Computed example of a mutant assay.
Amino acid sequence: MGELATGGCQCGRVRYAVALDNDDAYLCHCRMCQRATGGVSIAFTNVSRSAVTWTTREPDRFHSSAIAERGYCRDCGTPLTFEYLKASEKLDLTVGSFDEPGRFRPTAHFGTESLHEAWLDTRSLPRQRSDEYAPLLERWKAADAKPG
Results as ranks from 00 to 15, higher is better:
M1H: 13
M1P: 12
M1G: 15
M1K: 10
G2I: 07
T6E: 14
G7E: 08
G8D: 10
C11T: 04
C11Q: 07
G12C: 06
V14K: 10
Y16R: 04
A17Y: 00
A17I: 00
A17V: 02
A19Y: 00
L20F: 04
D23F: 10
D23Q: 13
D24N: 14
D24W: 01
D24G: 09
A25Y: 04
A25R: 04
L27W: 12
C28Q: 09
C28I: 04
C28S: 10
C30G: 11
R31L: 13
R31N: 09
M32L: 13
Q34S: 09
A36L: 10
T37S: 14
T37Y: 02
G38V: 05
I42M: 07
I42T: 13
I42W: 02
A43G: 14
T45C: 09
N46W: 01
N46D: 08
N46E: 13
S48A: 15
S48Q: 15
R49Y: 02
R49F: 00
S50T: 14
A51L: 01
A51C: 05
V52R: 08
V52L: 14
V52E: 07
T53K: 14
W54K: 03
W54D: 03
W54R: 05
T55D: 08
T56F: 04
R57W: 01
E58M: 08
E58S: 13
D60Q: 11
R61K: 12
S64F: 04
A66K: 13
I67Y: 07
A68E: 10
E69N: 06
G71A: 06
G71F: 04
Y72K: 06
C76G: 03
G77S: 09
T81W: 10
E83Y: 00
E83P: 01
K86P: 00
K90L: 10
K90Y: 12
D92F: 02
L93C: 09
V95L: 05
G96Y: 10
G96I: 07
S97R: 04
D99W: 03
D99C: 01
D99H: 05
G102S: 02
G102Y: 09
R103K: 13
F104C: 06
P106C: 12
T107M: 03
A108L: 03
H109K: 10
H109E: 12
E113K: 10
L115R: 15
E117D: 14
A118F: 09
W119S: 15
L120S: 00
D121H: 11
R123Q: 13
S124P: 01
R127D: 00
Q128W: 03
R129T: 01
R129L: 11
S130Q: 11
S130Y: 11
S130H: 12
D131Y: 06
E132H: 13
Y133G: 02
P135N: 08
L136F: 15
L137K: 12
E138L: 06
W140K: 03
A142R: 14
A142Q: 15
A143T: 02
A145S: 13
K146W: 01
K146C: 00
G148D: 10
G148H: 12
